[in-house]
């Protein structure tokens, strides 16, 4: 209570796979330290104890896809002093935002035999379309070390060290030879936000953009490079329409290659 006023943490889930909040439980070496530094007041995936709001810090996972959630996010905002969205669903609408390019009615009837039982919105949208967001952490999934960094920064009232440059810089840092230049493997690294540590290229695979667009991405130039490597327009559309399909630069570049 009042005598040991630790900051109170809440974790909220909207439309998502649970992977980003699981990142917190995946901090095996840091979990008990985090639990010592904050009061975990509301984290249903980990505890049946629910402490009433307001909360000092809310982590929000998932996108808004139902009328109910479009209202619930406002309550979460009212209860939260500082609100951080975690992961591609919360920051860009996630893979489920592929519905935004189609008629959702066709989607429902493709999956459910009784479509009338399903209540859903026609679009999957990021949290920032609905309420003010204080900070965004990118990734599908987020990087757990970035999550610990954000928690630590907020607890210590400092700015978190989260870079917004491209995956290319991370490849240079870890000494990975450019797979697009050296091997001709199509790669979204030049336009993708850093944070993963450039995992894919170190596994001989092109980046597929799961951290979304970096600041000021030149997607047009990258698309020209991909075309030069023999990537077809439909495949460029698919590359842009992944886990961050509705992040503005990726959405626009995808549409430019769709006839």
């Amino acid at each position: 209570m009042a005598q040991n006023a630790k900051p109170r943490l809440a974790v909220w889930k909207f439309s998502s796979c649970d992977g980003c909040q699981l990142s917190l439980l995946d901090c095996e070496d840091e979990l008990l330290a985090v639990a010592g530094a904050v009061e975990i007041a509301n984290f249903p995936e980990a505890s049946r104890a629910v402490g009433k709001g307001p909360y000092d810090l809310s982590l929000v996972e998932g996108s808004i896809t139902t009328p109910h959630d479009a209202e619930r996010i406002h309550r979460v905002r009212r209860l939260s002093k500082f609100l951080v969205t975690i992961g591609a669903c919360a920051t860009a609408g996630g893979i489920q935002a592929l519905r935004n390019f189609h008629d959702v009615k066709n989607y429902i009837s493709a999956v459910y035999p009784s479509p009338e039982f399903i209540e859903t919105l026609s679009k999957s949208t990021p949290i920032s379309d609905h309420v003010k967001v204080d900070m965004e952490l990118r990734g599908c999934p987020i990087n757990k070390y970035q999550l610990v960094e954000v928690l630590s920064a907020i607890l210590n009232k400092r700015k978190p060290g989260i870079s917004s440059h491209s995956v290319c810089i991370e490849c240079k840092r870890r000494g990975t030879v450019c797979i697009m230049v050296a091997q001709g493997i199509p790669c979204l690294g030049p336009v993708t936000h850093a944070g993963c540590g450039a995992i894919c290229p170190s596994y001989n695979r092109g980046c597929y953009g799961c951290f979304g667009p970096k600041e000021t991405p030149n997607t047009e130039s990258l698309a020209a490079q991909l075309t030069g490597l023999g990537v077809s327009d439909p495949d460029i559309v698919r590359a842009m329409r992944g886990f961050n399909a509705c992040a503005e630069p990726f959405r626009k570049e995808g549409e430019a290659h769709e006839r």
């Binding site: 139902t66 489920q96 959702v104 999956v111």
Partner: peptide, 9 residues
């Protein structure tokens, strides 16, 4: 849990 329509997408 909101539907995400994987089989359709």
């Amino acid at each position: 849990e909101p539907p995400r329509f994987f089989e359709a997408l």
